[in-house]
Design a protein around this nucleic acid. Structure first.
Lengths: 205, 205
DNA sequence: GGAAATAATAAACAGTGTTTATTAAATTTG
DNA sequence: CAAATTTAATAAACACTGTTTATTATTTCC
């Protein structure tokens, strides 16, 4: 069945083309300023064609959100090679924050935007696998730290969620423009300081 | 000039009516699902009338965002009566998180949504006064803690930003549905645990 | 080559934020 | 008081949006 095989491949290729066009438009002009018509125009297909490959716009956003998780996941994976759990925890924080700031539009899709989660709800998916897997990188490491005698008296799950909240909060405030006017200082300086504070806290608890 | 005076009052009243309608629609159906036409319909005016009172939709969202800050500000003010700065810091965190979870749509507008900040940019306002004032409640208290010998070696500004990030992160993750699937547990339990972790960290650093 | 299946699209639908030209009402002036 | 002028409200339109449906090409199969 060489023909059906080729057809499947073609279908995947156009799907990937749509996603690539969507992604590049997001990076250029932002998610909110990109329409289905814009995407169709860029790949020189009609808007209706998009709907032969995706159920709706939310599915496109969800698919890109998943792409983002694969990229973040591979970066986090590398850090799992660090044997000392506390050092690894710090490295995970660094990687997470760097990823978010270097790919803010993707991070937005992954952790802030409503659309990808609305897609999950429509699919009646109760689970958010991408999020769970990423969280497990963190919670496994926190658990190791506790097993090694650190973070005494802390519940591993709760502490993991708190740490996640902390790094997410920083980048989310910056991405959604809530740092302006908080200080006169260079936002870069603000950020470095906050992250240093975070590291210092990890050392003290 | 009794007439012009009355006219000014009427203008303010209709403006307030529009804002009240917008706010109640947001609470009922969400920000994203509320249109100018919905608001106009609710107060039984034409959509075009809205534009005699507000420059655009973003101005409405910005005005509601400011309302939210007045409400949060008054809650935070009450806590400034707590004399012990560390106890006050914990109280501020509690108030902040409770406000966010009890008024999630308003919190979204204040700290997550793009629209209110886009309005500021259009107005060429470099400053975000509401945010700065709220942040000062926190940073003043952190500075007092440091003056009282706590949080040794921490930069007050950086630590304040980190604490803010931490509480913002928690509520932002919940409001934008990133807690689902992270755990099987009741989200309420997750949250209480994370906040306890946060308090415990404040005690340890 | 002709029938069936697939792929792509034009056009329409119902909605959005916003602007403009027009009408109705209230106020000021002669 | 009546006429002129200012103010307030709106209907209708514009240029978009996501999405669906009916129609037209194209390709595959027998």
């Amino acid at each position: 069945m060489g023909i059906t095989e080729r057809k499947v491949k073609e279908k995947q290729e156009l799907k990937a083309l749509i996603l690539a066009a969507a992604r590049s438009l997001f990076l250029e002009r932002g998610i909110g300023e990109t329409s289905i018509r814009n995407i169709a125009e860029r790949i020189e297909y009609s808007p209706a064609t998009i709907y032969l490959y995706f159920k709706d716009k939310d599915e496109i956003l969800h698919e890109l959100h998943s792409q983002g998780f694969r990229e973040l996941g591979s970066r986090l994976s590398v850090m799992m090679a660090v044997s000392d759990p506390v050092a690894r925890l710090k490295a995970l924080g660094r990687v997470y924050v760097d990823f978010a700031r270097q790919n803010s539009e993707m991070y937005d899709l992954m952790f802030i935007a409503r659309a990808p989660m609305q897609f999950l709800e429509k699919m009646e998916e109760e689970k958010w696998d991408e999020g769970r897997v990423a969280f497990e990188f963190l919670s496994a490491t926190v658990a190791e730290c506790i097993a090694a005698g650190r973070f005494a008296g802390h519940d591993p799950f709760s502490l993991s969620f708190m740490i996640w909240s902390c790094v997410h909060g920083m980048v989310a405030l910056e991405i959604r423009d809530r740092c302006k006017g908080i200080t006169c200082e260079n936002p870069e300086t603000v950020f470095r300081g906050a992250f240093e504070s975070f590291i210092k806290v990890l050392e003290e608890i």
